[in-house]
Computed example of a mutant assay.
Amino acid sequence: MTIKFESKHLGAYFICGTQDIKNENQTIVSVLTEALNAGITAFQFREKGPTSLTGEAKYKLAVTLKKLCKDFNVPFIVDDDVALAKRVGADGIHVGQKDQKVGQVITEVGDQIFVGLSCDTKEQVEEANQLSGLAYIGSGPAFTTQSKADADPVIGPEEIAKLVKLSDYPVVAIGGITEDNVTELAGTGVAGVSVISVIAQSDNINRTVSELKTVKY
């Protein structure tokens, strides 16, 4: 049984792939285990970049990570890979504006897998509002990010707050969010924050997740 989406799943949403693990004493499995124990509310497997896994190796890792998430009743979300999401029995899939057309993805996965979409402009949110079958949208970058080489220009907390008001779907903020700046998103109305390096490279994952979850968005 897959996990049905609820907006609370966006509270502390961890995104990670093998390319994001910089400490040679850690693996994505060890980092995700710590993050799950610390209380993350969703996990997205985003395996992208020149060093990332492909094919059967990517699938086998996805199976391992999915099982970990299931043990904690936390949604396992796949980034931009419908075939993998279906094969591994993912709870959700996330697509960007530059990825496969979201309408096609919604049609292909039906009601078996929930769908998230990146929307960083007023026009993109208005288009998303016309779709049926979306679960949530991700908006940002909230701040300057080093985790994505192709990141869009920073829009900031004020613009994210405007997109939240415009959106018919719950919004999760993304991009450059750290323990130091996350409080700047307080009062924006987002359902939570999605982060990569602040957890993947944290020296204390318990503290980091706690910081993300204590802000009143």
Rank of each mutant, 00 (worst) to 15 (best):
I3V: 08
K4G: 09
E6M: 11
L10W: 06
C16V: 03
T18H: 06
Q19D: 13
D20E: 13
D20T: 13
N25G: 14
V29M: 06
T33W: 12
L36F: 06
A38G: 03
I40E: 01
I40W: 03
Q44W: 03
F45H: 10
R46V: 07
E47F: 01
K48T: 08
G49R: 00
S52W: 04
T54L: 13
E56M: 07
K58I: 05
K58R: 13
K60G: 10
V63K: 11
T64C: 12
T64N: 15
K67V: 04
C69Q: 01
D71H: 14
D71Y: 15
F72M: 06
V74M: 04
P75S: 07
V78P: 00
D79I: 01
D81P: 11
A83P: 13
L84D: 02
K86M: 09
K86G: 07
R87W: 02
G89H: 01
I93Y: 09
V95W: 02
D99L: 08
Q100D: 07
Q100W: 04
Q100H: 05
K101S: 15
V102C: 12
V102I: 14
G103A: 11
Q104L: 15
E108D: 15
V109T: 14
D111F: 10
Q112L: 14
I113G: 10
V115H: 03
G116N: 08
T121E: 12
K122I: 08
E123L: 12
E126P: 10
E127C: 11
N129K: 02
G133F: 04
L134V: 05
S139K: 10
Q146W: 15
S147M: 09
K148P: 15
A149I: 15
A151E: 10
D152Q: 15
V154A: 06
V154T: 02
I155E: 11
E159I: 13
E159A: 14
A161R: 03
L163T: 03
L166Y: 09
D168P: 13
Y169S: 04
V171G: 00
V172A: 02
A173G: 04
I174Y: 06
G175W: 01
I177N: 01
T178C: 11
V182G: 03
V182S: 07
E184H: 09
L185G: 00
G187P: 05
T188Y: 04
G189A: 02
V190P: 00
V195E: 01
I196H: 05
S197N: 13
S197T: 13
I199K: 10
S202I: 10
S202C: 11
D203Y: 05
I205C: 05
R207P: 00
V209P: 03
V209T: 04
S210I: 08
K213N: 07
K213P: 10
Y217C: 09
Y217I: 10
